[in-house]
Design a protein around this nucleic acid. Structure first.
Lengths: 115, 115
DNA sequence: AGCCGTGATATTTCAAATAGTATAACCGTA
DNA sequence: TACGGTTATACTATTTGAAATATCACGGCT
């Protein structure tokens, strides 16, 4: 049988989905670019979509995710708030630990495929 | 901040996705109904979609998933092959173990939210 | 022979997600 | 004052995926 592998997706919910791999990467890039627009472009995402994602997250979490400046030097920019960064980092640690654990379990549970 | 919880989705891949929560539930119900059509209906899924899912899984895994009888008593029916059942059960054990582990980790990593 | 409930497919219709476009406000800088 | 690059938001178009529909084959049952 064809070689099998597992992928694990972690999403955070309040009532509705508010955090997943997409947001995580987007926030990462905002950190690097200091701008939501360039972050979106760098991952080939429409700015309007990026903004909506962030907007939803803020609504659903009830915390500010981006600190924003409109106009001025470089036209403005955005940075990740400490509250949001804390969630982002917790999310990433959480994912890493789960994936690390899952790797071994996969070997155990799907060992029979090697026969 | 709003109460947060995590959902974990496990999918199996060869080259393409070939197994996830949807297939798992579908196979479960085939077990109960002894028919792909009634299984699909019981979970409010179109038969055509159910069939496509199974078909893809068979192509991508390279194993028969359903043993099928057309015509005859009750019009025919379908049962899950032993190979597919083995994967189904491994998948479910795998998911259970990951979710069990993840619960504790979630408490640890997101403890700061309780402050 | 005709009906019924099943599986096997292809085709068509519809809905939802995504992408793209447009416009306005903002404010350093030239 | 005009420009450039940003955020904010609404609106439209496109693409994707799911759902519904339409045939056909099969084989016990009546």
């Amino acid at each position: 049988m064809a070689k099998l592998r597992a992928k694990i997706t972690v999403r955070l919910f309040t009532d509705e989905k508010c955090f997943g791999p997409g947001v995580a990467e987007l926030l990462h890039r905002v950190d690097e670019c200091h701008s939501l627009r360039s972050a979106a472009i760098s991952m080939e995402m429409a700015y309007s979509k990026a903004w909506t994602i962030i907007h939803n997250m803020e609504q659903r979490l009830g915390i500010p995710v981006l600190e924003v400046k409109i106009g001025g030097k470089n036209g403005g920019g955005a940075t990740v708030t400490p509250e949001a960064r804390q969630i982002l980092e917790a999310y990433e640690r959480y994912c890493r630990r789960i994936n690390a654990y899952a790797e071994g379990v996969f070997q155990e549970e799907f060992a029979f495929l090697e026969k």
